[in-house]
Amino acid sequence: MASSTAGATERRGIPGAQFVEDVETYLTQSGLDVNSALSFLQERLQQYRVVEMKLLAQQRDLQAKIPDIEKCLDVVSTLQSKKGTGEALIADFEIAEGIYSRASIDESDSVCLWLGANVMLEYSCEEATALLQKNLENAKASLEVLIADLQFLRDQVTITQVTVARIYNWDVHQRRLRQATGAAKDL
């Protein structure tokens, strides 16, 4: 699940968040003061948010596409099961919003698939099933990759949030120490 190395670098263009072992060392090494470190991290969080939105939109698209393909497969298999029975398939279909008409679909060896970009192609039922099946598998595979991307992204967000909280706490702690020593001197 979670990657085992602290230096998970990047995944599909998403930069990995650096895990900070020790706040003080991190600040000296990166040459940043508390405020610029915090604003750098906040900016990073903002960027992660943008990517998250993009990925979520892609996820929604795919999640809508999968049932669509399944529906198409269902229709093709219905047509195929009618083959050889000699009966026509009677179906009510929508010709316009809320208006239905009746169609009689004669036994047929082929269906036309809408391929997009104003192109429709005639396939035999077997070929159509194979093509739709392949599309379905591709869509499922991309969804899996996408979910993994989202998980990676959210891990980076969590790491960054924890780092922000720790830098902030460290700063508060330092101020208290300075105040305490300052007060001691005044005495």
Partner: peptide, 25 residues
């Protein structure tokens, strides 16, 4: 949320961070 306002710092290790990530997932 992991925001915290306590003064004293508990050391956070990579293992802890992984646990937090896992919890988030």
């Amino acid at each position: 949320q992991q925001q915290q306002a306590g003064g004293s710092e508990t050391e956070v290790t990579w293992g802890d961070q992984q646990n937090i990530n896992q919890f988030g997932r």
